[in-house]
Design a protein around this nucleic acid. Structure first.
Lengths: 216, 216
DNA sequence: AATAAGTCGTGATTTTATTCACATTCTTTT
DNA sequence: AAAAGAATGTGAATAAAATCACGACTTATT
């Protein structure tokens, strides 16, 4: 864990799970080898970028041949710690939270939502998507060895809940609320802001016109 | 529209909706002025980056004073075309799709989901979150002047639906499926890959340890 | 009125990420 | 066994983004 290979660029690290999924697909399709060019077409990342990304882990391929799918898969499985399950808690069983509970994150994945919390007493005890729902007041009682929390509460609650999560030992938060939460330096937060995504797509459409008609 | 200010960096463009939202908040709180430093603390973006971002639009602030909230707000409203509503269609009324229909994107927003589509006949006619649901077979009949589509279908369907959307004149797609879809050059796609986000957060936690204890 | 404090806008620098382009090596074909 | 073709890995170049650091101007204070 946290090896001295700290040199892997963040942009590369963000692409690793994507590569992993597609390599997995190839493996299921029975493909034995793959070139950076083929992979590029599948994941929509420039082939030179893929080769560069892979090269941070050493020479995974063979010149003139490409990459062995099986080898690549086992390498990425190891690198992404796919054999070790990371426990995740979800806070806020609203529409979005419920969707995630039903979403099967475990497919090709080393993460498992083990419990959920909500402030609404009507939601207690129910097992949404096989995940037990507890009252948010009891957060601290249930969160043990939970490394990651998915935050899908109303944005007014975001900061308060965050502080409790941090105190309870969570070290990573996937924040789906529009609030930008404050955390101590040792906590990592990734923001996914749905309306910003939509708005920025609209902005790009209006201000960054792409080639008109090109026929794929 | 698509002015000659094509020079705005993409990274800046992605942050604009975020700035807009926070400036809006400040305005509602009755604040009259704000400095890049204050804004920085709120949106968690370095203050120099904020000043640089704003500077692409000219001199919006005043030295020694900061930015006038009202002016900033009206400037961003104009820049982000907040007065013109962009029509959005949602394809795939599963758990995630339903969550978006309930989510009120219109708050602080110039986008409106006007219709939804699903392949399940049981979902037809229902008005989820005030949005009518049509059968996906009738996609082409209803999509008129719809610029943007949100894709929340099973990943096996993603490419096929995408092609129909493109033929029907959609020019931007917000893709929530794990599939990387292929589109002609003049179509813009933003991918939001939920399990990649979760996995990459986990990867960062394990491999990029942050300062141990800092006590914010 | 003079001084101090605050804050922008930006040239310069640094950092991060992407892409080019090719020598090298492996595979396949003849 | 030689030649042709394919594809890696990477030094070098380029591009994009973030950050530093400070002159210039504004506001607040004495």
């Amino acid at each position: 864990m946290n090896n001295e290979q700290n040199k892997i660029p963040q942009a590369t690290a963000k692409r690793l799970p994507l590569y992993y999924r597609f390599i997995n697909n190839l493996h299921h399709q029975g493909k034995l080898r793959v070139s950076s060019k083929e992979l590029s077409e599948a994941v929509k990342v420039d082939s030179a970028t893929i080769r560069r990304d892979f090269s941070y882990f050493g020479a995974l391929g063979k010149k003139g041949y490409g990459y062995n799918v099986e080898y690549l898969l086992s390498f990425f499985r190891k690198t992404l710690d796919q054999d070790e399950v990371t426990k995740v808690a979800l806070i806020g069983v609203g529409n979005l939270g419920t969707a995630f509970l039903h979403y099967n994150f475990m497919k090709n994945n080393n993460t498992k939502i083990e419990m959920a919390f909500d402030a609404d007493p009507n939601k207690l005890g129910s097992d949404i998507g096989g995940v037990p729902v507890y009252h948010v007041d009891d957060l601290e009682d249930h969160l043990k060895n939970t490394a990651v929390a998915i935050l899908t509460v109303p944005s007014t609650e975001a900061q308060g809940i965050t502080e409790r999560l941090v105190d309870a030992g969570v070290s990573g938060i996937l924040n789906f609320t529009p609030a930008r939460i404050s955390v101590p330096d040792h906590i990592r937060v990734h923001h996914i802001d749905l309306s910003v995504e939509l708005q920025s797509l609209v902005y790009f459409l209006k201000h960054y016109p792409l080639e008109e008609e090109a026929g794929d």
